[in-house]
């Protein structure tokens, strides 16, 4: 039982990260119906920038929490800038082009960002310096670490803030209007271009925080970490119903738990015919399953075959 609980805790932590990244996908998709393939790379850039800053400050005698905070603060604007540039350069000129075009540029941007990061930070993984003392708390036979608690709390906080912004502020109303019908929203005096840029920037900021979270959790960051994470987060967004904020959060957490339980129990359940080696398959299976049987996802109302 304690092992099961431990797996749930692992899944919850991982799922919180997926959820934050999935929010970025879902927001962009909701507003311009584009799968931003390069979103995962923003997570990577966030982690790398933060790690560089944290490593540089590790020698000083600042309190560790402050150092991490400064790292996050450094990562957010960089990611925002990259997110903004991405939209301006690669997506905006293609907004009226056929669907295939921005999708292909998105893949291109993803490759370019990955290899630019390689040039800046080299191939060697960056390690998280040992500044945060490792603490654990027993809970029902399992243990939960300080970092895990921090990750779960931060993501809950960010989801709350984002929900507030989208549903309670003027900007949020403008975003929702644009997503409903950009033409009419434009006629009502909303600056569509600005709203779209803003969506990208918010998504990028979320990605930056997610990058720091996942990097701190595992203690390692490298130039190739974004793509698979991005793919999985996208699957989470689809699972929850793409374009739907609550769906992204639910999908992320569910996917995290599915992965943890899958890797933990599939071996025992199938008499070791399948094992943890299929861990990365689960996300894709979920993705394909959802798209085939319920394209609208768990909470979504959109249909999967919009062109």
């Amino acid at each position: 039982m304690d092992i099961f609980l431990q797996q749930i805790i692992n899944g919850l932590t991982l799922g919180s990260v997926y959820a934050i990244v999935a929010l970025g996908y879902t927001m962009v998709y909701g507003i311009i119906q584009l799968i931003n393939f390069a979103h995962g790379e923003l997570v990577m850039i966030g982690a790398m920038v933060a790690f560089s800053v944290i490593n540089a400050l590790a020698g000083t005698h600042l309190p560790p929490v402050l150092i991490v905070f400064i790292g996050i603060l450094a990562a957010i604007p960089v990611c925002m800038l990259v997110g903004y540039a991405m939209e301006r350069i690669a997506y905006r000129p293609l907004r009226s082009a056929p669907r295939l075009a921005p999708l292909i540029t998105a893949i291109g941007i993803s490759i370019i960002l990955q290899h630019l990061a390689l040039l800046v930070w080299s191939r060697n993984p960056l390690a998280f310096p040992q500044i945060i003392p490792f603490v654990t708390f027993p809970i029902g036979g399992a243990i939960i670490s300080g970092v895990q608690i921090a990750i779960i709390l931060t993501s809950v906080l960010m989801m709350g803030a984002l929900t507030f912004m989208v549903y309670r502020t003027k900007l949020g109303i403008a975003m929702r209007a644009t997503s409903q019908n950009p033409l009419v929203a434009g006629l009502m005096g909303i600056d569509i271009d600005r709203i779209i840029s803003f969506t990208f920037i918010v998504g990028a900021a979320l990605a930056a925080v997610a990058g720091v979270m996942v990097g701190t959790y595992y203690g390692i960051a490298h130039y190739g970490m974004g793509s698979l994470l991005g793919m999985k987060a996208f699957s989470a967004a689809v699972l929850g119903g793409i374009g739907n904020l609550a769906g992204a959060m639910l999908g992320g957490i569910l996917l995290g738990i599915v992965e943890a339980l899958g890797a933990g129990y599939i071996g025992d359940l199938t008499n070791n015919v399948f094992g943890s080696n299929y861990q990365d398959v689960f996300a894709f299976m979920v993705l394909i399953g959802v798209l085939v049987f319920r394209p609208s996802g768990l909470l979504g109302e959109r249909v999967g075959d919009r062109a």
Partner: peptide, 16 residues
Amino acid sequence: LRGDYLAIVTLGFGEI
């Protein structure tokens, strides 16, 4: 499925 969804499903299939 069309367009972007198909792209991402095929990507997943390739990995599987």
